[in-house]
Simulated scan of single mutants.
Amino acid sequence: MPAVDVPVLAVDGPPGAGKTSVLAKLIPFLGSAAAWFTEPNARLARGLDAPTHPSPAGHSLWFLRHEQAKARAMQRLAADPATRLILCDRNHLGALAYCYATHAEDSLPYRTARDFYARHVAPALPERVLTVILLVSPAESLRRRGGAAELPRWKQWFDPDLLERLHHFYTHIAPGLCPSPPRVIDTDHASIRDVLGEIAEHLRAADITLPGDPTDVPIAGSPEQDSAFARAYQQLGGLEALGHTASAPFDYRHGTVQLYQLGALHRTPDARTILWNPLANDPTLRAAS
């Protein structure tokens, strides 16, 4: 596989650490200079791309295979001359963290997940992969998210024991599973602007030039959903599938995009609204040459 010259930045960490909030500011700031992947979402996968078994083990394997497909897709995205950086909301660490922390009887054993990563994902990764791990204490994670799950299927992510084990994984194990030494940021007492500043410093240390200072981006409250995306949002499952809005709509490569907690929607130049999926070889996701 040919090497990818475009650097990759992956942001990972436990629930409530601020990953989506930070990326919802960073992605519009970078604009067409970046290609990006939302958090993997098995609920939005269809057909042959959907998990083959609805168990925790089946979903963990789906996430790891998604990382393998993503690594391959990066080759195509990097070939676009407009792309200067590839961004990822989570990477392989997310699936490994879950396998390490869960107590579900039908979960994928951590060692099996780690071996799958080593054999199938790591060899497909580009040469320049930078990782930022956002840490948050279990107590602060619960406080930020209201202390209780908004939907029943999110309940496990509010289990204090699971959060403790996730915190241990990201603190003591995850750094050794990154292709290069990660930037670890404790967000308990850090603002979004603080985290953006540390990420910018991490990129500059790797000789990656940014089109300005991301700490200058406006830090507003909760964005509203644009009416252009409302119908597609509901058809795809609404809150259950995509979560709350994470960004205001922004122009991106001749279309308009709105970010959500668990995905994104793209309004194409011909007024179609589709799920954002850079794994697909869709010419609407590429800049005009």
Rank of each mutant, 00 (worst) to 15 (best):
T268G: 10
R253L: 12
L151W: 11
C88A: 14
L285Y: 08
R114C: 09
S247L: 03
R253F: 07
H92S: 06
A232Y: 07
V217T: 12
A57K: 03
R231F: 06
Q234C: 10
L23V: 08
W62A: 00
P152V: 09
A205P: 02
A228H: 11
P214R: 07
D270R: 15
W276D: 02
A139G: 10
R114M: 11
L259S: 00
G31Y: 12
V257R: 11
I274F: 10
A288L: 14
F29L: 08
A149E: 05
I208C: 12
K155C: 05
P81Y: 08
L196K: 02
P283R: 15
P56G: 02
L9I: 02
S180N: 12
A17I: 03
S21R: 13
H244W: 14
S222H: 13
H59I: 15
D186V: 09
S191Q: 04
H254K: 13
D216H: 14
L262Y: 13
V129I: 10
I274Y: 09
S60A: 15
L125N: 08
I133Y: 05
V11K: 00
R153V: 06
P138M: 09
L203A: 12
V22Y: 01
H254V: 03
L142A: 10
G176N: 11
V136L: 07
R286H: 15
A10S: 12
L125W: 05
D226A: 13
Q235R: 15
L26Q: 06
K70A: 15
G243N: 05
L135A: 12
Y110I: 08
H202P: 06
P51I: 05
G238Q: 08
A33L: 15
V184M: 08
L85Y: 08
Y233D: 03
F169W: 03
T38D: 14
A95T: 06
L242W: 04
T268K: 08
I219C: 11
A34Y: 10
A73D: 12
L196N: 01
V4S: 02
